[in-house]
Each structure stands twice: as structure tokens, then as C-alpha cells.
Computed example of a mutant assay.
Amino acid sequence: MQLLCRFDTPDYDEWKKTFDADAEDRMNAGLTLLQLWRDADTPSAALALFEVNDRKRAQAWIEKETGFGHALTADFLKPAL
């Protein structure tokens, strides 16, 4: 299972520093970063694709991040048949 997250931030460079510093927390939530993109139409926004090793822990991480007031949307994905 994978998780696609969109982060809307007013300052991408500051967000990226915080995102990089949060790598261990994401790892503890069972998330492995597969790809990180910047939105071509909204340069301050970023999209991240994660491999999910534990959906319950990943969901808890999402709730924690949004609880801190981070502008985050998240969708769990599974392969289409």
C-alpha cells in the first residue's frame, strides 16, 4: 500500500528543512519515502509518495501532522486491477 500526501506551505524551503528533519519520525510511523515532487503550478506545494508498512501507524502520523496545523491532504492507494 502507498500513501500520497500533498503539503501546502507558504515557504517550500523552510518546509523542506522541517520535512528532512522529520525523517526518523516518518520511519517510526512505518513510512518510506519513494518520491517527492513540487507542484508545477503551485511551487510552494509538495507531493510525497510513501510506501506504507503499517497503515495504523501511518494514519496516526497523518493525524499528528494535521493536529499541528500542517496543511496536509493524504490518500492511501492500492494497485488498480
Rank of each mutant, 00 (worst) to 15 (best):
M1W: 03
F50H: 04
K16R: 15
D39S: 06
K17A: 15
D22Y: 12
A29S: 11
D13E: 04
T32P: 01
E24L: 13
W61E: 13
L81G: 07
K17H: 14
S44T: 15
W15Q: 10
K16H: 08
M27E: 12
Y12E: 09
F7Y: 15
D8G: 03
A71T: 09
D75Q: 07
A71Y: 07
D13T: 13
R38I: 08
D25F: 04
L81M: 06
M1S: 10
E24W: 05
L34R: 13
T9G: 06
H70R: 12
L49E: 09
K16L: 12
L72Q: 07
F76M: 05
T9M: 09
T73E: 13
D8L: 02
E24M: 12
R6V: 08
L49G: 07
K16M: 13
C5I: 02
A58P: 01
S44R: 04
L3Y: 02
D54F: 00
A29H: 04
W37Y: 06
P10Q: 11
T73K: 09
D25V: 03
N28Y: 00
D22T: 14
W61Y: 14
T9W: 02
L47M: 14
K78H: 10
K17C: 14
N53C: 01
K64D: 08
L33A: 05
K64S: 02
I62Q: 15
K64L: 02
E63N: 13
A46T: 10
N53M: 12
M1K: 05
Q59N: 11
T73D: 12
T42G: 00
L3C: 04
D39K: 00
R38C: 06
P10K: 04
K78D: 14
A45H: 09
K56V: 13
N53Q: 13
L72R: 09
D25H: 02
L77W: 05
Q59W: 02
K16W: 07
F7W: 12
Q35H: 14
L49I: 12
L77I: 15
L49S: 09
D25A: 14
E24N: 11
Q59G: 08
W61G: 00
R55C: 03
D11N: 12
D41F: 10
K16D: 05
N53P: 00
A45E: 03
A46I: 03
A45K: 03
T66F: 04
L77C: 15
K56E: 15
E65M: 04
R26C: 07
L72A: 08
D20K: 11
E14G: 10
A71R: 12
N53R: 14
T66L: 08
K16S: 11
T9C: 07
F50Q: 00
D41A: 11
L77M: 15
K78P: 01
A74L: 05
D13K: 09
